[in-house]
């Protein structure tokens, strides 16, 4: 599913990720942990194609992300869900429209989008909230909208960058439960977090980073 062979990423000669080799199998749930500046976000950016490795080889579904062109990355992202700490929702669009965007880019007919969005909003506990605007929701609800958008197209992999970072304890657990449920349906989930409590409550394999190096896997 995801393979890194001695991957490094440098910014202006400074190593943000150094010589990392990892293999994440299909359907696995794993954490990417470490203190600030450890390289968690850099790894996620490499995985969703926002940046390219300086050295090494990164394969996702056998696609080499190094030489991959923009259209290859766009194609890959259609089978990938990404969740951010700051939600990244479009404030002018309703909850349903935000979630449906991931299906719009696939050219899914409007009626199908309506049905799928309603089903996914039910899964994340937001049934009947589709017509509301994101800013009228709480932080936890907004993050659940972001998760709904990430899972609405049945992606093979979900990448979450500190998805619970802006949420209080109860809301963080709600979001983790949704991600866990998605993983149980066979989706690979990778969560970047430094929340030790969360990792204890939902124990999975942890890729531990420090100063850009993989310490433990």
């Amino acid at each position: 599913m995801i393979r890194l062979y001695r991957v490094s990423k440098e910014y202006a000669g400074v190593g943000a990720l150094i010589d990392v080799s990892v293999h994440v199998t299909k359907g696995e749930f794993c954490y990417i942990s470490g203190p600030s500046g450890a390289g968690k976000s850099t790894l996620l950016k490499l995985l969703y194609g926002a940046i390219k490795p300086t050295r090494g080889k990164l394969l996702i579904n056998n696609i080499d992300m190094g030489p991959a062109k923009d259209r290859d990355i766009a194609h890959l992202r259609r089978h990938m869900g990404v969740v951010f700490q700051d939600f990244k929702l479009i404030p002018r669009r309703t909850v349903a429209e935000n979630v449906g965007l991931a299906l719009e880019v696939l050219g899914t007919p409007r009626e199908v989008i309506g049905r799928r969005v309603a089903a996914v909003l039910s899964i994340v506990g937001l049934r009947g909230r589709g017509d509301e605007l994101p800013l009228s929701l709480s932080g936890g609800e907004q993050q659940r909208v972001a998760v709904a958008r990430a899972i609405v197209n049945d992606p093979a992999v979900i990448l979450a960058d500190e998805p619970t970072g802006n949420l209080d304890g109860a809301m963080a657990i709600e979001v983790m439960e949704v991600l866990q449920a998605v993983n149980l349906r066979g989706t690979t989930v990778m969560v970047a977090t430094h929340d030790a409590g969360l990792m204890q409550r939902f124990p999975y394999r942890t890729l531990r980073f420090r100063a850009g190096r993989l310490e433990a896997s």
Partner: peptide, 14 residues
């Protein structure tokens, strides 16, 4: 621009 950024994240083609 935020909309365009999110469209790119969900795999929208150019």
């Amino acid at each position: 621009r935020d909309e365009v950024e999110i469209e790119k994240l969900v795999g929208a083609s150019t």
